[in-house]
């Protein structure tokens, strides 16, 4: 027991500080991916309900591909495929070599997957808002942008929040996959610690507990946002 505590402690004898940096990396990656996924997902959902058939078709193709591929495979496609593409591009044009780091690859791959799922959440939320809301806004003389920002969006966030909360949990868990291509997140640090100390159960168990703490914290935060969006409703 004492031995385990020393191994998990901070400083040169323990792996506590490495695991802590892993937590920071995991949280940073999730938070950096979230805005990309949300924005892209929002515009995809707009494309899916436009009367322009080609635009709708394009958005549907995007969703079909990135909802159907395993996250791990998407990650590998981005990491190896885009990097190979960039390399041949720089060879062809003589531009300096640029390569995606594992962090950026993770951001791109997870952001794309997140947006594919988020577009469906936004789409069903859009459908839940009565048509009269938009017409009422128009009748008051608001422009299209103002109707969207002042009338539709506040209601949209409220309706879409539970679905988006689930997607955030998935995103947080999916960041663990990026450890496979070498990102020093919680799982990667636990793997290194397990190999060096030969205590795999202790370190993978700790990693799982850390993820559990992150998801529990997230559910509190999401619950808080949920109450905030519903502050105008009458308590029942």
């Amino acid at each position: 027991m004492n031995e385990s505590l020393t191994l998990l402690g901070f400083g040169s004898t323990g792996w506590g500080d490495e695991l802590a940096t892993g937590v920071v990396v995991t949280v940073t990656l999730s938070l950096a991916t979230l805005p990309i996924g949300l924005c892209l997902g929002f515009f995809l959902s707009l494309a899916k309900q436009s009367d322009d058939r080609l635009l709708k078709l394009s958005a549907d193709i995007f969703t079909t591909i990135f909802r159907g591929l395993p996250e791990l495979l998407t990650l590998f496609l981005v990491y190896f495929g885009v990097n190979a593409g960039l390399k041949s591009l720089s060879q062809a044009t003589g531009l300096p070599d640029i390569a995606l780091s594992s962090f950026v690859s993770g951001m791109v791959a997870l952001g794309v997957v997140f947006s594919a799922f988020a577009s469906e959440v936004f789409l069903s939320a859009f459908r839940a808002i009565p048509h009269g809301q938009r017409e009422g806004g128009m009748a008051l003389g608001l422009g299209r942008t103002k109707v969207m920002l002042l009338v539709i969006l506040p209601q949209l966030i409220k309706i879409a929040l539970p679905g988006l909360g689930n997607l955030w949990m998935n995103l947080l868990k999916d960041t663990a996959l990026v450890s496979v291509i070498g990102l020093a997140d919680i799982l990667r640090q636990a793997q290194i610690a397990a190999r060096v100390s030969r205590e795999p159960f202790l370190f993978f168990g700790t990693a799982i507990v850390l993820y559990l703490v992150l998801t529990i914290l997230s559910s509190f935060v999401i619950g808080g946002i949920d109450r905030w969006t519903k502050r105008g409703e009458v308590a029942r």
């Binding site: 960041t175 663990a176 996959l177 795999p200 993978f204 168990g205 799982i208 993820y211």
Partner: peptide, 23 residues
């Protein structure tokens, strides 16, 4: 339910495959 839905599958697999190997 909370344990299995709140943690990454890859960490669960590592715990079973590598972690249980310790015993």
């Amino acid at each position: 339910v909370y344990f299995f839905r709140g943690t990454p599958l890859i960490a669960q697999i590592f715990l079973v495959y590598y972690g249980f190997g310790q015993f």
